[in-house]
Structure formats: structure tokens, C-alpha cells
């Protein structure tokens, strides 16, 4: 187990080198630069432009810039935003709770609905219930996020007026930021009206972001359950006279969960990339939104640092999932 964990950790190093390189290359290869962005539509005189480029260190050859950047990263310095002049790490940490809150509830939505849906489809396979679940999950998986989001906004926000269109909380509420998680902070402040507002803002983005994981989890649970239900130990459990419920939950689900957990872990990585789109659509003030603005303003440190931090998160989550896998599956733990 320890050796397994160490080997996994050793893989992290080349992954990080690759991530920094790609992030650096991509952002520098898109046309435009931060200075051009600052100059606006009227343009800037070439002397001033050269001075600014020199000030940002952007007049040096790319390999030198990259080496300089990596050197700073290794010392724990991700640089400062070119537009706000705040350290990238500080900006990230301030915005991250919003993304985490959104991703967390998206995942809760996906797991809470996906597991029972997959189990139902497996138990009632080749019936109407099965076809309905699998059809809905295929539709959910295939639907472009932005289109799905617009459909939901049109229906629930515009037509029915049940939920707000965008943002994290209505403007009239001023909640002191303690944890950065809006639901927690509103509750801490004892402001239930604000809490309700925060919940109503969260519902649609969480559903939109959770739809693809929901579809994947439902399908994976179904196929995993179908496989497990054919196992001898399920028949042996039934031969003990256990109720259908006990056999399904204690034996079938427990074994079926092993591959599902891996899938859930992989979805967490996808969730962060999905969050970029979802946050943009719903103007959710999280790191997805922040990264998009960073790209638009060619804010190199923000984009590079942001991508690096997101990659670190995904790698971390996958590592945790692998270790979790060992806990769920005794064959790995004692292997």
C-alpha cells in the first residue's frame, strides 16, 4: 500500500512539468498579449508598449520566460495578476470556495440521483423503467452544457420565475465572508432569508454541472450492478434467506460501488473543467469565471497559475480516490 502510494506520488512530477509547459505554451501562442489588452481600442504608442512589455518581462525569449516562471513556481511564487496586481494564489483561494461549493452540490446531486437510478435500472433491466433511466442518462450525457443551462434558465428562471438567473446571492444580502461557502456563511450569520437566496442561486448551476456526472454514474452503477448480480455470492446471500433489500444493499451495491467510486473520482476532475462553462453561464464568481477572464485579458500569471492549481487539485483528488479504492476493496488493501 505504501509503495503503491509512493509510486503514485512519483508520477505527479512529470505530470506537473507537462501541465506548466502546456499552460505556458497555450496562453502565449494565442494572439494578443496583456499590453495590447491594456491599450484598448485606440492603440498605444510603440515606445510605451515596449516599456510595458519590458516591465512585465515579456520581451525576453519564451524559453527564458518559461524557466523564470518555473523557478518562481518552485519557490512557491505563482506571481501576481497583471490586471489586479493581487497575488494569483490569493485570488485563487478567495474564489475557490465558490467553485468548491458549486462542485460539491453538483456531485451530491449526481450521486444521490445517479446511484438509485442505476440500481433501479439494473434491478428492472429491460423494462420501461430501465429504458427510461438509460434514455434520460444518454440524453443528459449528450446535451451540451450551455444549451442545457439555457433551457433550464428559460424554463425555471424566466418562465416560472422560481430561481434567479445568475449570481451567487441576491444583491440585498451582505453576508460576512468567513468560510467562503455561501450556504455556511449565511447560516453562521443566522440570516435565513439570505440562506434561501443562496440556495435558490445554487440549484440551477448545480443541476447543470451535475448532469453529466449524474448520467455517467447512473450508467456505471447499472452495468456494475448487473455484473455483480450475476455473481455466486449474490445467490449465496439469497440462499441465507436475506431479504431482497439486504442482498441488494449489503452485497450487490457494496461490490458494485468499487468501479463506481473510480468513476466518481474521474468525474471530480471533469467537474472542475465543467465548472468553467457553468460559472460563465451563471456568472458564478468562482475560479472558472476567473480563468475565463484571465484568458480574455491575457493575464498570463492568472491563467498559468490557475491551470496549475486546478491540475494539482485533480491530481490530488485522483490520488485520494485511489487510496479510497483500497479501503472499499479489501483485495487491494491486503494484497
Amino acid at each position: 500500500m505504501l509503495r503503491f502510494a509512493l509510486r503514485r506520488l512519483a508520477l505527479v512530477v512529470p505530470t506537473f512539468i507537462g501541465v506548466t509547459l502546456i499552460a505556458f505554451a497555450l496562453i502565449h501562442f494565442i494572439p494578443g498579449d496583456p499590453v495590447e489588452n491594456l491599450s484598448g481600442e485606440r492603440g498605444m504608442d510603440p515606445a510605451r508598449r515596449a516599456r510595458l512589455l519590458h516591465e512585465f518581462g515579456l520581451d525576453r525569449p519564451l524559453p527564458v520566460q518559461y524557466a523564470d516562471y518555473v523557478g518562481h513556481v518552485l519557490r512557491g511564487d505563482l506571481g501576481a495578476s497583471l490586471t489586479t496586481h493581487q497575488p494569483v494564489l490569493d485570488e485563487f483561494l478567495a474564489l475557490f470556495p465558490a467553485t468548491l461549493e458549486l462542485a460539491f452540490f453538483a456531485m451530491v446531486f449526481a450521486v444521490v440521483l445517479g446511484l438509485p437510478a442505476g440500481m433501479l435500472a439494473a434491478q428492472k433491466r429491460n423494462t420501461l423503467a430501465d429504458y427510461a433511466v438509460m434514455g434520460a442518462s444518454l440524453a443528459g450525457y449528450s446535451m451540451p452544457i450551455f444549451w442545457w443551462a439555457l433551457l433550464l434558465i428559460l424554463t425555471f428562471s424566466v418562465q416560472l420565475g422560481w430561481t434567479p438567473v445568475s449570481g451567487r446571492i441576491a444583491v440585498e444580502y451582505d453576508v460576512p465572508v468567513v468560510t467562503g461557502f455561501m450556504l455556511v456563511d449565511t447560516l453562521r450569520a443566522g440570516d435565513f432569508a439570505a440562506f434561501r437566496s443562496a440556495v435558490s442561486h445554487l440549484v440551477l448551476p448545480a443541476i447543470v454541472l451535475g448532469t453529466i456526472p449524474l448520467a455517467v454514474i447512473a450508467r456505471m452503477t447499472r452495468s456494475s450492478m448487473l455484473e455483480v448480480l450475476r455473481e455466486d455470492y449474490i445467490r449465496a446471500a439469497r440462499a441465507k434467506g436475506l431479504s431482497v433489500m439486504a442482498v441488494t444493499i449489503v452485497h450487490a451495491l457494496r461490490n458494485a460501488l468499487i468501479p463506481v467510486i473510480t468513476v466518481i473520482g474521474l468525474q471530480v476532475g471533469l467537474l472542475l473543467s465543467g465548472a468553467i462553462l457553468t460559472e460563465t453561464i451563471f456568472s458564478w464568481p468562482g475560479i472558472g469565471n476567473w480563468l475565463i477572464h484571465g484568458v480574455q485579458s491575457r493575464d498570463y500569471p492568472v491563467v498559468q497559475g490557475g491551470i496549475l492549481l486546478v491540475a494539482a487539485l485533480v491530481i490530488g483528488v485522483n490520488l485520494v480516490v485511489d487510496l479510497l479504492y483500497g479501503i472499499v476493496n479489501p483485495r487491494i488493501r491486503h494484497g
Binding site: Y233, A236, A239, R254
Partner: peptide, 14 residues
């Protein structure tokens, strides 16, 4: 009560 052909498969690995 019943016992089965492949005892290793009849015990739940978890």
C-alpha cells in the same frame, strides 16, 4: 441450507 460449487466465488469478497 445450501452450499455451492465454487466456494471462493460464493463468499462476498467485501
Amino acid at each position: 441450507a445450501m452450499i455451492f460449487q465454487d466456494p471462493l466465488a460464493a463468499l462476498d469478497p467485501c
